[in-house]
Design a protein around this nucleic acid. Structure first.
Lengths: 242, 242
DNA sequence: GATTGTTTCAAACACGCGTTTGATGCGATC
DNA sequence: GATCGCATCAAACGCGTGTTTGAAACAATC
């Protein structure tokens, strides 16, 4: 069932002459495209332009090469899309927009090849031993940053669990476009996809959706006059007791 | 690197005596757990209690068995968790809560084994030839149902593309818990996970978050936030038939 | 009981996999 | 120039895979 290697040998061969790096790059692409089991050491070495034995010479075994290539992809992506920094006094609405924009850019950005993200995605969806490291070093700091932005936005009116759930709502909205992008593409007309599914456009949507949910921005739908006692056509049976 | 089969031979052997069905069930579990490449015909047959040659006798080849087991899982899940029906006049807030509850119950529900969902998830994340069928027959109708609920909720003040993006925000919030559940589990303390990540609790959160964003419910961070009491009887007693 | 067609089985087959091996090339060091 | 250590290579080694085979077990029909 094996076909040609996933990478394009003519363009992919890195100019760097370090065989170790060439193997890491080729392995990342192959693992991202085919998964750990289906990717073969032979194809990786063919794409990297090295002998089959090189993998075991430099990495000992296939599993170790996989772990190293996940870490490598993570570092590369972090270098390519650095996280935003704000000077003191930046309004939290702006921070949220920047954060979401950065997250989506990192996940969907067309500027760079996306195999790094796809490789990391595989880890998140079906964790192996490389996953916990990835979460602790990479994801948790970002997640905590998001939570503190949301804490600012809600003016400390939400407790930590609630803030975490809101943060997961934000991440979930972005995550869908990356993880299930193919299915989203089938559900949405092509014209709309091109015009409104660019990272910046999606960031606008997710941000305003979240701000509205927190009461820190205008609601998306009908008129919602702030202040108790107004229902805007709602019959008042919101969420709690069904 | 192969370990023991994913299924539990003592409890999994179906009572039905049709070998074809036994193979389908065992194959679904193995493919869901390990993926197409890593799952082996031998393990599947061991779990199903049939000879190795049975797979080729009944299905011709491994690939065909995979496709058939995806379809089988889809049909089974649809039978187990039917979509909710409402009588005319049901308020859209209630419909949204039911829809989200049903979606989460279907994705996360602990009542049934979850291998069907995991198998379908694999298809969505890395589509093969079985995917398009799955989207058109199964996902699009549900998605359209959600869009029309949201249209009701927004009192026709949002155009179709905007409605679709809101719908994707709803689905994304739920999807994260299913697809990246392991990572979510690492980010959230265990106590909170147990108390607030049951399907019904998550449905409450996603629903109120969405209603607030649409202006059809009180914002989460503002004056409406209810006191520390909360907890008002939101057990899972009322989504679609479990 | 013989015959026919279907289902099950243990055994084998051919192939591709990850990994190992031992020889070879090559630059640095003495 | 001899020696050493590192890097590279073609070839092979086990092993597990999906698949095939040919015979045995079984059920139904004549």
């Amino acid at each position: 069932m094996a076909t040609a290697p996933a990478s394009h040998p003519t363009t992919d061969r890195p100019t760097g002459d370090d065989p170790r790096d060439r193997i890491l790059a080729a392995a990342g692409r192959e693992f991202a495209e085919r998964g750990f089991e289906a990717a073969t050491v032979r194809d990786i070495c063919l794409a990297a332009g090295v002998n089959v034995a090189a993998v075991n010479y430099y990495f000992g075994e296939k599993r170790r090469l996989y772990i190293e290539s996940v870490k490598h992809a993570h570092r590369e992506r972090e270098r390519q899309v650095p996280e935003p920094r704000w000077e003191p006094g930046t309004p939290p609405e702006r921070k949220l927009r920047d954060f979401v924009g950065n997250l989506l850019e990192r996940m969907l950005g067309f500027g760079q090849p996306d195999w790094q993200v796809r490789l990391m995605l595989r880890e998140l969806l079906h964790p192996t031993e490389a996953c916990r490291e990835l979460v602790e070093d990479y994801i948790r700091p970002h997640f905590d940053g998001l939570v503190s932005i949301l804490r600012e936005l809600s003016a400390d009116s939400l407790d930590a669990p609630r803030l975490r759930r809101v943060a997961l709502s934000v991440v979930g909205q972005c995550f869908l476009y990356r993880a299930a992008g193919d299915v989203v593409g089938m559900l949405v007309p092509a014209s709309e996809r091109e015009s409104h599914h660019a990272p910046a456009r999606l960031a606008d949507h997710v941000t305003s959706f979240t701000l509205a949910a927190l009461g820190a921005g205008p609601p998306l739908g009908g008129a919602w006059s702030r202040g108790p006692g107004e229902g805007a056509g709602s019959d008042g049976s919101e969420d709690g007791a069904p």
